[in-house]
């Protein structure tokens, strides 16, 4: 065989092999992380985890009830504030301001906020909410999460509304429907599954966020529902327990980590299925 040809072939096979290796490398990490999470987390996954509060140092009984409830409350409030804002902002970008100078500026800034370090968001809320309120609070934590939700929802909302065919809008306008109703009744409906996908992805993003809660909501060891005080939450509790010397706390940290990961992956997969259904239609 021609030596140049066989050299090119060898090189091609080598690179193909490396690319395959890279893919195997990536998938292996996911598998390794999930396997260790299940291996260490399943042992502690029992009813106590959901009905008992976090134990004092050294104790070998207790669960994560207060942290789970706290995380749920803050995530719901954060998404509750951030999702509508992001949705309306995305609506403006896609419907009213399509050819606006303002739109391109906002889109650019939003894309930067989308990837901005979450610990910076924490610092911002610390300066803007915690300092004026003179104390760490669950509401500060929720606001920090809301600031993270907005760019995610804005981005997907805009993308999804831009996919809605203009003919639909024109048809509605021709029937005499005012602009706001064209958007609410026609565009939102046509893009519904996409909009829900955005909210699900945003929820998944904040469900495991730790850095912005470290010095906004802080965390505590009790069951509390007051929004103007510190509130226990899963990520910060895990953060504290991992670095503790107590075996039982570490066990709880693994179980909590498994809970968060399963929730986040379920939300991600749910969002994916929703958007896959959409493209299949």
């Amino acid at each position: 065989m021609n030596p140049i040809y066989s050299r090119r072939r060898r090189k091609d096979i080598l690179i193909r092999g490396l690319c395959f290796g890279a893919a195997a490398f990536g998938v292996t990490w996911l598998a390794l992380i999930l396997i260790t999470l299940f291996y260490n987390g399943l042992a502690g996954l029992n009813l106590d985890l959901f009905v008992a509060d976090t134990p004092p140092p050294g104790s070998t009984e207790g669960g994560l009830r207060n942290a789970i409830v706290g995380s749920l409350i803050m995530t719901v409030i954060g998404v509750g504030i951030g999702a509508p804002l992001g949705l309306f902002a995305g609506t403006y970008l896609a419907e009213y301001g399509r050819n606006d100078k303002l739109t391109s500026v906002i889109r650019f800034i939003n894309d930067i906020l989308l990837s901005a370090p979450s610990i910076i968001i924490g610092l911002f809320i610390y300066g803007a909410v915690v300092v004026p309120m003179r104390g760490f609070s669950a509401i500060a934590g929720s606001l920090a999460l809301a600031v993270i939700v907005i760019p995610v929802v804005l981005r997907t909302t805009e993308d999804m509304l831009l996919l809605v065919p203009n003919a639909l809008r024109e048809a509605a306008s021709a029937l005499g429907l005012p602009r706001s109703l064209v958007i609410k009744r026609i565009a939102y409906r046509a893009a519904r599954s996409g909009l829900i996908t955005g909210v699900l992805l945003a929820t998944a993003r904040v469900a495991g966020e730790t850095a912005p809660l470290l010095f906004t909501a802080l965390s505590n060891q009790f069951f509390s529902l007051g929004l103007n005080k510190t509130m226990a939450n899963l990520p910060v509790t895990i953060n504290n327990f991992v670095q503790s010397p107590y075996a039982y706390w570490k066990q709880l940290a693994w179980s909590g980590a498994l809970l968060i990961t399963l929730t986040v992956l379920a939300l991600n997969i749910g969002a994916r299925i929703l958007s896959a259904e959409r493209t299949a239609k």
Partner: peptide
Amino acid sequence: MAIELLAGIPSIIYGMWGFFV
């Protein structure tokens, strides 16, 4: 999908896994 799920795992899980494993 597996690669994109890697992006979905919260960063604290990576930290914890790095610390223990």
